[in-house]
Design a protein around this nucleic acid. Sequence first.
DNA 1: GCGTAACCTTACGCACGAGTAGGTATGCTC
DNA 2: GAGCATACCTACTCGTGCGTAAGGTTACGC
Lengths: 212, 212
Amino acid sequence: MSTGPTFKRLPRAVREQQMLDAAVRVFSRRGFHAASMDEIAEDAGISKPMVYAYLGTKEELFVACLHREGTRMMQAIAGAAAPDLPADERLWRGLRAFFGFVGAHRDGWAVLYRQARGEQPFAGELATMRARLVEVVAGMLDHALRGEGREVAATDLEVVAYALVGATESLADWLADHPEADPEKTATRMMNVAWLGAGQLLHGVTWRPPAF
Amino acid sequence: MSTGPTFKRLPRAVREQQMLDAAVRVFSRRGFHAASMDEIAEDAGISKPMVYAYLGTKEELFVACLHREGTRMMQAIAGAAAPDLPADERLWRGLRAFFGFVGAHRDGWAVLYRQARGEQPFAGELATMRARLVEVVAGMLDHALRGEGREVAATDLEVVAYALVGATESLADWLADHPEADPEKTATRMMNVAWLGAGQLLHGVTWRPPAF
DNA sequence: GCGTAACCTTACGCACGAGTAGGTATGCTC
DNA sequence: GAGCATACCTACTCGTGCGTAAGGTTACGC
């Protein structure tokens, strides 16, 4: 056979990656429940029992996708936002890396966040990742605040960080739905909202509800 | 039968509300797929065919829940944020109404947002509601900007509004997960982030990426 | 008191898709 | 080139849960 049409035997590690690629594609376009293992297998160019043999049940497969995509994303962010930079520089680089990642892996983002958020077994998994991110952002805020000689209750920091992360995720959704949009520009916009808002808080400016 | 224990025949309108109540409860604690029509029927104290007769298929039932809860929420917000108030007052009242609503209907919120976001058939429905909200927020920003004699591209406004709405939803999630948290205080925190950040933008202060 | 229309039930059909049993081919080692 | 492990397949089982057919029962008009 002259050009051996590639659908020969492959080592396990390679097939596993192909399967994960297919799974991410299918999960993101169908949703967890509507996706069938048959379709994933077909998309990966393999038969169903192989998927079970390598990646386990449907839930385990989904978690595997979640982990791979999540780890890639975290690495992209961590690699960009070195901890010894000043706060605004760090935030900016982190945001840019994040939106760059989402822009480049729109379907990965879809499977990672939109699906996992609602489904009971995965919501916890996701919450853990988000919590790590919130922790980092809160740490940055705290660091910057102490640099200004100010101090704020941990809960307040956490909630503000939570809002910032939420806004960022929301813009990521927006980005995923607008293929023509520019990740870099989106990051700049987010930076504006985050840094100016947070910056005011850092300088002790706060808004208070009107007395009555 | 001395005290006829209430589980007699009831007019359609009443039963429909009972069913919707039950559906919201079950959907929110199980998720859309894991929820079974049998369980919803049982929870409503009725048999399954009645649910089908009144509210239609499972998807239609879910959409009905979505609509009822969504409408209630929109009315709560619209009723609080009168359009003739100044922008910050309006934003504050809207936020307070929103977080108050979420605090009072934590399971309704769960069914409304967390579930619908991921599931393909409902994501569109939800996106429509969110779009309306974004439109309103963007309108407020635009109004305030023009009051300052400034003008900003529609896309920029939309994206900022999107971020604000995302941050708010995120805090609502946080609130739903923290039963001891105070809606009013959460609203204040959100107002801080939103108003101070947006306020800066209104005054023409922007952040720019470092040149290199 | 009797029809009729709405309310409500039990009991089932049926499709779909997760997961598996058991068998075949291929390459690698000695 | 015998043996063995690993890659890979076709073809099934079987539970689950949506949606329904066909039949009871209560209220209300006349």
